[in-house]
């Protein structure tokens, strides 16, 4: 006499009839949601990377702006350069040539700007050493020795960038949470429809002595597997779409950075298991809710 291990008996899973519209619906929902989730994840990663790049570039440099009468400009510049040379944490300092200043203003005023007629302040670009400098101390020294010089350490530029990046990350996280919630809601609907369609099956199973967990398991396994498979396809499609994004180079900003780099490509691989967990929880809750109404 042969007896199968009840936990491994495939007949336990077959007690629920196969297929039905809910099967396709779950596959489709999981696939679509995983596809969107990969993009939200990519957006989050890209925002993070871009903010880090901008922040790093801006935090490594500072500018000293010298506004003084033309007769004192060279003298003030020399003082500023000397102060900077003797300031710990300053790697180098250079006066930005007039032509370079013109290039900076060209996008706003055009190429024919008469720079020699304008009383432009002189700009000194300061490059920080890795240990950084004491900006408050430097400001005080400049105020004392070169009253027309103002230090701009780019804090006011950096802060909005960091805030924008944080908001982008929060938006991406919110998107992923919404995707997860929508997936759970739709899987719940599909599972409820399947449970309703199989009311007679559930009734018979209860009458022959099945416990709720046995009946729920038959539905939960099926929906979890469908969500896993659907999400795997959706994730693969999302990753493929990111790979196929055209390279817009550095000028593309966020657009060109939308994707993963190196080990970041492992992040989206977490999407299918997460979708399966969401489907598992949603189906289990739906199944037990329905079963409470069956004696």
């Amino acid at each position: 006499m042969s007896a199968r291990d009840p936990r491994r008996d495939p007949r336990a899973l077959r007690v629920v009839p196969p297929a039905g519209q809910s099967a396709w619906l779950t596959l489709l929902i999981a696939g679509a949601m995983a596809f969107l989730c990969v993009f939200a994840l990519a957006l989050s990663v890209a925002a993070d990377r871009l903010a880090a790049r901008w922040g790093e570039a801006l935090s490594r440099t500072a500018t000293v702006r010298i506004s003084a009468p033309a007769t004192q400009m060279d003298e003030q510049t020399a003082i500023v350069l000397e102060v900077l040379r003797t300031t710990p944490g300053v790697a180098s300092a250079r006066v930005i040539p007039v032509e370079e200043q013109g290039a900076l203003l060209e996008p706003w005023f055009g190429p024919d700007l008469p720079l020699d007629l304008l009383a432009l302040p002189r700009l000194v670009e300061v490059t920080e050493a890795p240990e950084g400098f004491d900006s408050m101390g430097l400001r005080l020294r400049l105020a004392a020795e070169a009253p027309g010089a103002v230090l701009d350490d780019h804090t006011r530029w950096r802060r909005p960038l960091v805030e924008a990046a944080a908001r982008l990350r929060a938006l991406a996280a919110l998107s992923m949470a919404l995707i997860g919630g929508a997936t759970a809601a739709m899987v719940t609907l599909a599972a409820s429809a399947s449970l309703a369609a199989n009311a007679q099956v559930i009734g018979v199973l209860r009458l022959v002595g099945a416990r709720d967990r046995f009946i729920a398991r038959a539905f939960v396994r099926r929906f979890t597997l469908r969500a896993l498979i659907g999400a795997a396809f959706g994730t693969a499609a999302g990753m493929g779409a990111l790979l196929a994004m055209p390279d817009a180079g550095e000028s593309g900003g966020l657009l060109s950075g939308l994707g993963f780099a190196g080990l970041e490509w492992l992040y989206p691989l977490a999407v299918p298991p997460l979708a399966a967990v969401v489907a598992w929880a949603a189906t289990r809750a739906a199944a037990f809710r329905v079963l409470r109404g069956v004696t």
């Binding site: 007896a3 009840p6 936990r7 336990a12 018979v204 002595g209 046995f214 009946i215």
Partner: peptide, 24 residues
């Protein structure tokens, strides 16, 4: 359960009760 074979229907109380199914 109309989608199951007669044999599986007969064994259903054992399957649903998570008990071993002695095929013989």
């Amino acid at each position: 359960l109309d989608h199951l074979s007669l044999r599986d229907n007969v064994a259903l109380p054992l399957i649903a009760g998570e008990r071993p199914v002695p095929d013989q």
